[in-house]
Design a protein around this nucleic acid. Structure first.
Lengths: 188, 188
DNA sequence: GTCTATATGTTGATAGAC
DNA sequence: GTCTATCAACATATAGAC
């Protein structure tokens, strides 16, 4: 039996869980507190307002993004391959934070949108430095956005390597082959 | 000076406008009624509940989708080209309905998600019949999803032919070239 | 640090006049 | 068909005990 996480972390995890499972409307302070196993007052000790709670999620997202950038740069198969491979939802901490935050991006909170814009900009820069061509880099970015969007809207599946897309399956291998095809036209 | 639209249509348009501009949370019955230029009671005469209002939007979306399918099948450049071209936000009635509904898709209302799943399935079928290869068809679908997702999250831009993506521009021509590249690998 | 009230503002929805 | 009350439910946030 593992030691319980600190209340603050449990609250953040509960917020993510509710955002993903039931959407922003259901992720009330009451509900988050209940899932985290604390009272509403207890929650508000760690995050003084709902805005602060969202701020905590955004902060976590940015931290995990930094780690992702580092891994992306060092990947033996290159940034583009890394990006496509990791855009297929794998249930990592980062994936969870992204999908949770995506559900908030449609709201009024501009901080979430701004965080996404920053992360996107860095991803694009890294992919471009890998593939060379800007149109191909953008296409790859859009593929990744599409993958995350599908998870955010239609939910996750059990298989980590394949995610459901309108009853069809997107498998990673075929997708990587298509990406190779895209790159082949511009390779020097 | 054009004749005023019927109140029912004005309400639906106001709902879309608020969903796109300020998100689902801001699209309250009060706000929708105000934008539409009717009272809350007046709104509730046409749509008996908020659920019914969303139902009206979904119905409109499905109707416009049928027209889109027909245009897609008849396009001289093929379904895939049509899909990519029209996935770049152009401000059409259909585009507006899609983006507005996308903002609702993250919520608890499963009817919106189901409508999207249906529309997606038909698009996929048509694109597959055009390009032949399932992996390429899926990649094209994901590109379109990515384009719409970017509009839904980051908002529209002024230029109809190019939409902003993290400070960069996605221009349609380059994207179509990349799609051609994808297809070239599987062409018989 | 965590809890139990409690205050305050919104939101969706009803009733009934016009 | 459209309006003006009005209500009950819920959400965020505060105050203060433990």
């Amino acid at each position: 039996m593992t030691t319980q996480l600190p209340a603050r972390d449990r609250v953040l995890n509960a917020y993510e869980e509710l955002l993903i499972k039931d959407g922003p409307r259901a992720a009330t302070l009451d509900a988050v507190a209940a899932v985290a196993g604390v009272s509403k007052g207890g929650l508000l000790y760690h995050f003084k307002s709902k805005e602060a709670l969202t701020g905590g999620l955004v902060h976590k997202l940015k931290e995990l993004a930094e780690l992702d950038f580092a891994a992306m740069e060092q990947d033996p198969e290159g940034c583009a391959s890394y990006y496509v491979r990791t855009s297929v939802f794998g249930g990592t901490t980062f994936d969870t934070a992204i999908v949770a935050a995506m559900r908030l991006a449609q709201g009024e909170d501009s901080t979430v949108r701004e965080a996404f814009a920053e992360i996107h900009a860095t991803w694009y820069k890294l992919i471009l430095s890998d593939v060379g061509d800007s149109a191909v880099a953008r296409a790859i970015m859009l593929l990744g956005d599409g993958l995350y969007y599908n998870v955010a809207v239609f939910g996750t599946t059990t298989t980590p390597q394949a995610t459901a897309l309108d009853g069809q399956e997107v498998d990673l291998e075929s997708l990587l082959k298509v990406v190779t095809l895209m790159r082949s036209g511009t390779r020097s």
